[in-house]
């Protein structure tokens, strides 16, 4: 436990001591700010239009602003994840510090857990920036906060799953660029897998759709907490970390 904590702190420190964390936060703040502006602008315009047409029904802020925003964030996250995970193991392998970790009385699991938790924490703090924008919605309206929380939970689960995959990919190389590129490809693939569902209904298409991270995120964006989606993400996280552990072990054998 203490080892995991030590590695967790070390990882966080190296994220925040280098420009990576701030760069990602700034980029995300900018992009999210833009989406936020667009979403609220559309919301306001539509709202005024429907009032002029005499429909008295107030528009649902959760449905019109927050849901599309969360969907957008889940896509932006796909781009952030490779940048978070690419250095996790590749950098240690390149600089030789992996020898320190692997010759210390620490279990591989503890190392992996510490690193993954740190990556997840960084992702959470990046996503946290978007919450600042959402405060405005609470100042000027009354959105329901429960679906928002569920949406963020979904983002963290989806992110966690991709981070686990990224961590695995990072153990396979000592080159950060390769780790980042491969992780990006994997993220993108897991995102677009569900596209087949638009024209194909065969069993294989269903499987592919099921494997897409987006399929499982949609309910979260609507504020629906479905066990089967949670289970999906948790199993991907487990699988990813399991592969990471195997890969670390094979480092010893292959060297």
């Amino acid at each position: 436990m203490r080892n995991t904590w030590a590695i967790y702190r070390k990882e966080l420190k190296s994220y925040f001591a280098s420009p990576i964390a701030y760069l990602l936060m700034a980029a995300f703040a900018l992009i999210f700010g833009y989406f936020f502006y667009a979403a609220t602008a559309i919301f306001v315009t539509r709202g005024m239009e429907s009032q002029m047409m005499g429909r008295g029904m107030p528009m649902d802020m959760n449905e019109w602003v927050i849901r599309p925003l969360l969907m957008n964030v889940s896509v932006i996250a796909l781009f952030l994840i490779p940048m978070i995970t690419m250095r996790l193991f590749a950098e240690e392998k390149r600089s030789g510090t992996i020898e320190l970790l692997m010759t210390s009385p620490v279990r591989d699991v503890e190392i992996i857990a510490g690193k993954w938790l740190a990556a997840e924490t960084l992702l959470a703090s990046i996503l946290g920036i978007s919450a600042l924008n959402l405060i405005f919605l609470f100042i000027h309206g009354q959105p329901d906060w429960r679906p928002i929380l569920i949406g963020y939970l979904g983002l963290l689960l989806q992110g966690g799953a991709l981070l686990a995959i990224g961590a695995f990919i990072s153990t396979t190389t000592r080159n950060q660029i390769i780790a980042g590129g491969a992780t990006f490809a994997a993220c993108l693939l897991l995102w677009i897998l569900d596209w087949v569902s638009s024209y194909e209904t065969a069993a294989w298409a269903k499987v592919m759709t099921y494997l897409s991270v987006v399929t499982h995120f949609e309910p979260f964006s609507k504020g629906i907490l479905d066990t089967k989606d949670v289970v999906f993400y948790l199993s991907v996280i487990f699988l990813g970390l399991f592969l990471t552990a195997r890969s670390m072990e094979s480092l010893r054998w292959r060297a």
Binding site: K13, S14, A17, T97, I98, L100
Partner: peptide
């Protein structure tokens, strides 16, 4: 096996807990 972004004492503390 040094971490460039760590100070010496900090690093040794890290190793101590490892």
């Amino acid at each position: 096996p040094l971490y460039p972004e760590m100070e010496v004492t900090e690093y040794l503390n890290f190793v101590a807990s490892l």
